[in-house]
Design a protein around this nucleic acid. Structure first.
Lengths: 335, 335
DNA sequence: CTGTTAGCGCATTCAT
DNA sequence: ATGAATGCGCTAACAG
């Protein structure tokens, strides 16, 4: 037998569906004993309101859509964790969607219309306008680290350039000179900006930049490490554009018998939880992506409450110096 | 201006709403030129179907609800990754929900009614009947590693007992005798079964079990390591009920100057991606949770296609021996 | 082939 | 305080 509807409850309780609705939704204009009766009948019938129907009638879903580039690796998992925590605290459901390629990403976004009240999109690779083109302009959307766009959506931008610059400064202060940058994929906003910061700092110190292009995955780090190991005048520092690549390199160096940081320093970006668990612990730039995710939900909630928000909020990553770039290897990861 | 509805398109295209629906949904009984015209008008108006309304009318949402215990740590992230990959491939949306405490978990499940066609629930701590009590029996539900339940839902069970037993055998074969088990929280199904397997193997070999209770988080591992370090007749192996605790201990031993595995072997459970990246790489039992997640979606899809499924599918974890339990520390994690 | 109509399940006017 | 009727946006059955 199919699920009980409000009509079934009304019939069984011998009242109208309007009364059932009012009783169950806690309206005041229902006699106390009628309310109790209706509630009892509803429970007995195992009645659960049909959220879809309700949201159609209310023009409000109490859900927000989340578009992430990927779920592989800790970075986006952390973002999702932050989003989920705040959304749950606010009683908002989460409709999840990942960019499994442009096509499916856009498709999946289309299907969010009528299902969610707002969107959070993190897509450093994709022009969000391309995605939003197929969407009602009326859907409030908070952007996180997206490429430049004409629209004035509320958004978060990470100050990658300054952060990468600061990391190079740190490496130079630690006595490194032949600093290689393992970048993210071309066209990715974060990747490009980190490259810019790296180059700026190197040039300022009269050092020549050397950039290898990676893919933000561990494999890129491993491959780069292997490439570096055999070289005549070996690099004395590898600055990877994210932690996964840095860790891939770290492990590869280790396997090859190279000491980190004595033979070569390694630095990453993001400060994923894993960073402090590898040996030696990884120096990195803390982005605090979970906090950004949580804050994004707060902004969405504020907009849904009628607030106005077109602000670009800047996130400034913080240097987290750890053993992988420090001479004193007795520095172990903190508990 | 609000979003365009099917009526707006119909009016602008000077056809009926039925024709619009048919044209846009690719029905054959529409003249080619009419279809093109409708499509053009729809695009011009930026029309996107209201998925909520559509699913109300179709009694089908094309979405599945996912209930996870937690998003902290890699284990459940990996599960979600597996689920997401398969769901996306099948064009299913994902409504995400985590057990932020019983109350909110149950609440959130209620709101899924009318929003999803099926449920995937992973809840080793909670009796799923308690959760499903508030839900229509008609919602197909696939269970992963849930405590015993009366209902005959399709489900996945992990053979924790055999796996824990096998891990103890491995440690004994490596010459260990004073093997301590750091368990998960009491009441958690996986935790209890791993305890049972550990005890069985220890007893069979005439060794006395020693169980410390943890919480599946890194902190438990750290604390346990500290407790073990000072003891007179120190343990020569620590078998943690999951990888995060094992890694917490690994790092703590390292900081304290204890060599792993020379001074003490460490083993985990789950084989999260992180396990092979720590130093020394962690011996563990591979559960393949991402694959389970993907398979759960496949089962859901099959049920949605009219299939019948009340099977209990057993997952048998596989031993992954790595450096943390092997004498030869020249074994490094594979690339 | 196309238009008209009737719901999907619910919340909410407007009456009473 | 309660009931009857309307509509949210869409699809499908029924006519033509």
């Amino acid at each position: 037998m199919a699920h009980a509807t409000i009509r079934d409850v009304a019939r069984a309780a011998k009242v109208s569906i309007a009364t059932v609705s009012r009783a169950l939704n806690g309206h005041s204009n229902v006699r106390a004993n009628v309310r109790e009766h209706v509630q009892a009948v509803a429970t007995a019938l195992g009645y659960v309101p049909h959220t879809g129907a309700r949201s159609l009638s209310l023009a409000k879903t109490n859900a927000i859509g989340v578009m992430l580039p990927d779920l592989h690796g800790e970075f986006y998992s952390e973002a999702l964790r932050g989003i989920d925590g705040e959304a749950s605290a606010r009683g908002l459901q989460l409709l999840l969607s990942n960019m499994h390629g442009d096509q499916r990403g856009a498709e999946s976004l289309r299907f969010m219309r009528g299902r969610v009240d707002a969107l959070i999109i993190m897509a450093p690779d994709i022009d969000p306008e391309r995605l939003l083109a197929h969407l009602p302009a009326s859907l409030p959307t908070v952007l996180i680290s997206c490429p430049d766009m004409a629209a004035d959506h509320p958004q978060f931008r990470i100050d990658n350039t300054a952060a990468a610059d600061a990391m190079v400064e740190h490496l130079i202060a630690a006595g490194r000179r032949r600093i290689v940058h393992l970048s993210g994929p071309r066209g990715n906003r974060d990747a490009e900006e980190r490259i810019a910061g790296y180059c700026a700092a190197m040039t300022r110190h009269g050092l020549s930049p050397r950039i290898l292009t990676g893919n933000f995955d561990e494999e890129s780090g491993t491959a780069t490490a292997h490439a570096l190991i055999g070289e005549a005048e070996r690099a004395d520092a590898l600055f990877a554009a994210n932690d996964m690549m840095a860790i891939g390199a770290l492990v590869a160096f280790h396997r090859a018998g190279l000491a980190v940081p004595e033979d070569i320093a390694v630095a990453g970006f993001d400060d994923i939880p894993l960073a402090r668990l590898v040996t030696p612990a990884l120096t990195t730039m803390r982005v605090g992506i979970a906090e950004i995710g949580a804050e994004a939900v707060s902004r969405v909630a504020a907009i849904l409450d009628g607030g106005d928000d077109t602000e670009i909020r800047w996130v400034v990553p913080q240097l987290v110096p750890r053993a992988s770039t420090l001479a004193d290897t007795r520095e172990f990861p903190p508990a």
